[in-house]
């Protein structure tokens, strides 16, 4: 069986400067791969390169078994890879929520009615069906993130790529987001600084260190747990 995403010896460059070199990365069906590393290490650029937004410097990128190097080749694979951007406002460009969620299906050749139907179903699947007619720029940060995710789910992608999905999301919507990602049957590439979130979701991890991408291990061990946290005085 072919891997969903396969990078061999790829050089990742941002604005002309190499940030990662010799990148080997494989994503198989059902895997949830976490990319970990400091700010500015090139994690976002790597995600952008995978879908061809940033031209890779060398090596080969195969998506769903097909070699991709030209915009035309990437364009074919993109609808199967749901890319959740760091800033929801970049993704939500339509005035109203339902228009935005229907955008992807419409691009895949659905009629307007089918696209809306799939959009509504995706919103309801995330428990935010009530937001459909709302104006997108007046949503809260958490609502925006969920609507973005609904826009991706509406396209029924095989892979999700999430760039800091929990940033700026409130607790309630954060729970919905986690639940939805847990239930997502496809594979996932995940960039996050939220260690708790990574721990509970990822099946495998890779670390960016000194311009290289290296495999890391996820292991469990019992230890005495001690931390400080805030309780309301009335509790």
């Amino acid at each position: 069986m072919t891997a969903l995403i396969e990078l061999r010896d790829v050089t990742i460059a941002r604005a002309g400067a190499t940030v990662l070199s010799g990148v080997d990365l494989t994503l198989e069906r059902g895997e949830r791969l976490a990319l970990i590393g400091p700010n500015g290490a090139g994690k976002t650029t790597l995600l952008r390169s995978i879908v061809g937004l940033e031209p890779a410097g060398g090596g080969s990128i195969r998506l769903f078994g097909e070699e991709c190097s030209t915009e035309r080749q990437f364009r074919k694979a993109r609808p199967r890879i749901g890319f959740l951007f760091q800033d929801s406002d970049d993704q939500l460009f339509c005035p109203t929520v339902i228009e935005d969620v229907a955008f992807g299906p419409l691009n895949m050749g659905c009629t307007m009615a089918e696209a809306r139907e799939r959009g509504i179903a995706a919103l309801e699947g995330l428990g935010i069906g009530h937001l459909a007619e709302r104006i997108s720029h007046r949503l809260s940060g958490g609502e925006k993130r969920l609507v973005c995710l609904a826009g991706l789910f509406a396209m029924q992608p095989d892979v999700l790529m999430l760039d800091e999905p929990t940033n700026g999301v409130d607790v309630d919507n954060g729970l919905r987001l986690r639940q939805a990602l847990h239930d997502f049957p496809g594979a996932m590439v995940l960039v996050s600084h939220d260690t708790e979130f990574v721990d509970e979701l990822a099946t495998r991890a890779m670390v960016v260190r000194r311009g290289r991408l290296i495999a890391a291990e996820i292991h469990e061990h019992a230890h005495v747990h001690r931390h400080r946290h805030v309780h309301l005085a009335s509790d």
């Binding site: 993109r78 609808p79 749901g82 951007f85 970049d90 955008f103 396209m155």
Partner: peptide, 16 residues
């Protein structure tokens, strides 16, 4: 970035 996000969702000229 908005244009890239649109491309990622397969934008080909149709607007919802």
């Amino acid at each position: 970035r908005v244009e890239e996000a649109m491309l990622c969702r397969g934008y080909a000229g149709r607007y919802p």
